[in-house]
Design a protein around this nucleic acid. Sequence first.
DNA 1: TAATTAAACTTGCATTTTGCAAGTTTAATT
DNA 2: AATTAAACTTGCAAAATGCAAGTTTAATTA
Lengths: 123, 123
Amino acid sequence: MKKGVKEIIEKRSECPISCTMDLVGDKWSLLIIRDMLYLGKTTYNEFLNSRESISTNILNDRLIKLTEIGLITYTGTAKRKKYELTKMGHDLKPVLESVALFGIKHSTADKTFLQKVKKVMDL
Amino acid sequence: MKKGVKEIIEKRSECPISCTMDLVGDKWSLLIIRDMLYLGKTTYNEFLNSRESISTNILNDRLIKLTEIGLITYTGTAKRKKYELTKMGHDLKPVLESVALFGIKHSTADKTFLQKVKKVMDL
DNA sequence: TAATTAAACTTGCATTTTGCAAGTTTAATT
DNA sequence: AATTAAACTTGCAAAATGCAAGTTTAATTA
């Protein structure tokens, strides 16, 4: 029998916001999703080489959790895994967009860089 | 001299998504913002009594951090503080909306309850 | 005004999560 | 057959979280 998300991740309440934060409300999960959605990354090493330098054990842990939750899946053999977003994973796109818009609005970063981000994200 | 956000919270990169997650990408911050935006909560004890039962030390820590970041402020005396969202805090509304919509879409919770949430959030 | 209440913290300690560095395994390449 | 390197794995220190209890002081009540 297929496990539901609730058996993997403990929910603090039934609130949809709280539940979503229980799934991806940590510092790394949404960055992996970002890399898949906007940078076309699919492999362990591609994720590993993101600017934010995630460590190997955390990356491994998150890839497993995101897979269990059903936000991503993979194809390919053990040492050549290719990860991709599921339908559910793609549903996080609006979240990433609003998060990015907030970040851009309150960022002090270089305007040229922020324009690039907007272009990549089609905002 | 007033501290900028960057002196309080360490950024992992200049990416707006990453920066936003550095600010509110933990399990509690957005729930406090939710309580303020949608449930009209303003005091320590009101936050403490949310369904998700945050513990006192974490709540205290988050209220300080969110204030330092500039997402919330307070009025009133030491033992009668009333917290409110800043303009920047209000800018998180679209984030909460998209997070809630994702949560609702993938929730297995009671439909009547989810309808109530949508109504409260005006979704 | 003195005693009581309670809101807003504070502290201590156990558990969990994260971060860092190094090592291991095995498919693919040379 | 030896080498490379992608994908983990392990160990340990540091930080964040959770829980229970205690403290402080403004506001209320007697």
